[in-house]
């Protein structure tokens, strides 16, 4: 566990809006903590996929946070990781079936990455660092904040990649017919470059803040 995460846990009780906002911005899981990268890069080639994936992850995060924090006094320390993984896997399986039941196409385009939410380190790290030490309501808010931070980040990536790579957003073309798509943006390399670009902006913002 990184020292930052420890510090989060050690801080005095902040207000619930604070708890929510921190995940969205100050401790954004993707842009600031840089965790849970695999789905961020893999399914962000269109805004729609990114949003669906983000919401699925957020759901699992909130649910597992709630369950884990409510069971936190019941789970012995030695088996906590094993039980956390059990709980997370359960919710992921549920989400997986739910998405299949909604649309086979969407499930196909998200592919195995729904199952891979299980190993998204963000979820486990929230469980470890927050839910296992805080009350149910706080954990829920933390999950919501982090989850929406994740959705926000995925959306940032997905929209840039779709706009440049496909000339559209959510499937709607936004450029004239003659627009030349930058195909690289939809390719894996484009994912790396776009995330790097967003991190660059965040870094720039951070450095500027540090200077003033």
């Amino acid at each position: 566990m990184s020292p930052e995460l420890k510090n989060i846990a050690l801080k005095d009780a902040p207000s619930s809006t604070d708890e929510f906002i921190k995940g969205l911005w100050r401790e954004n899981p993707v842009f600031v903590q840089v965790i849970g990268m695999c789905p961020v890069l893999a399914v962000s080639n269109s805004a729609e996929n990114a949003l669906a994936m983000g919401l699925a992850t957020a759901f699992v995060l909130v649910m597992s946070n709630v369950l884990i924090s409510s069971l936190r006094n019941f789970i012995p320390k030695q088996v906590r990781i094993a039980t956390y993984i059990l709980i997370i896997a359960t919710f992921v399986t549920m989400v997986d079936y739910a998405i299949q039941a909604i649309s086979v196409d969407l499930h196909k385009s998200l592919g195995a990455f729904i199952s891979l939410i299980v190993v998204n380190c963000m979820i486990l790290s929230r469980a470890e660092a927050f839910a296992s030490k805080n009350t149910v309501s706080k954990s829920a808010i933390d999950g919501l904040g982090m989850g929406f931070g994740f959705v926000f980040a995925l959306f940032c990536l997905g929209s840039v990649r779709e706009i440049l790579g496909n000339g559209s957003i959510f499937g709607f073309p936004i450029f004239p017919e003659s627009y030349q798509e930058w195909i690289i943006m939809i390719l894996p390399a484009g994912g790396f470059f776009t995330l790097a670009f967003w991190l660059l902006i965040f870094n720039h913002y951070k450095l500027k803040k540090a200077k003033s």
Partner: peptide
């Protein structure tokens, strides 16, 4: 980069 971005051109 150009090869990946604009493979036709």
């Amino acid at each position: 980069f150009l090869q990946a971005a604009f493979p036709v051109a």
